[in-house]
């Protein structure tokens, strides 16, 4: 006997996602672009957002979750205001990126992949950003810092701390 699928309650409304989906000329393969859009708007993919996308596109929620967990760019947790990404590509690695990462862990008092309690900084290591000539490279949001050494870390953190006022 086939069992009735449990009705999933859709919470909230997401007009930006609706609008984007409507505007897509080709709905085949729309899932990943829609997830990109949702993350761009909301910063991360909450369970509610994933369920909504599943409902909107008519695909199982398990597939949305499967895709979300497969790709490293999709966030399943809320991220900090400033996302510190330390490149651990090979060129950065041989030029000491691990020490830079350790210095950030020390300065922010969190481990790699964690977010500070005040929600300001998320620390991550990332794959090659293709700026190997500047190794080791750190990106904070969209800003690129090249040839970073562990002594520069405090200055970089302070630079963003000083912007907190501007954003709020």
């Amino acid at each position: 006997m086939a069992q009735e699928a449990a009705e999933v309650e859709i919470k909230g409304s997401y007009p930006e996602i609706d609008e984007y989906y409507e505007s897509m000329p080709d709905k085949n393969g729309a899932l990943i672009p829609v997830m990109h859009k949702a993350q761009q708007v909301y910063g991360w993919l909450s369970e509610d957002v994933q369920l909504y996308i599943s409902h909107l596109l008519g695909v199982p929620a398990s597939k949305v979750y499967g895709v979300a967990t497969f790709y490293s760019l999709f966030n399943l947790e809320r991220k900090g205001k400033f996302r510190v990404n330390v490149c651990l590509g090979t060129a950065c690695y041989v030029r000491g990126a691990e020490k830079v990462l350790a210095a950030f862990e020390n300065e922010l008092d969190i481990k790699n992949t964690e977010t500070t309690k005040d929600g300001l900084f998320t620390l991550s290591s990332i794959r090659c950003v293709g700026a190997c000539g500047l190794a080791p490279v750190v990106m904070v949001n969209d800003k690129v810092f090249g040839r970073v050494n562990p002594d520069d870390v405090k200055r970089i953190v302070d630079e963003f701390l000083s912007k907190v006022g501007d954003i709020a």
Partner: peptide, 11 residues
């Protein structure tokens, strides 16, 4: 989808 760490010619 240039993914090799240390390669940036496609970029």
């Amino acid at each position: 989808d240039e993914g090799d760490p240390g390669a940036f010619m496609d970029r």
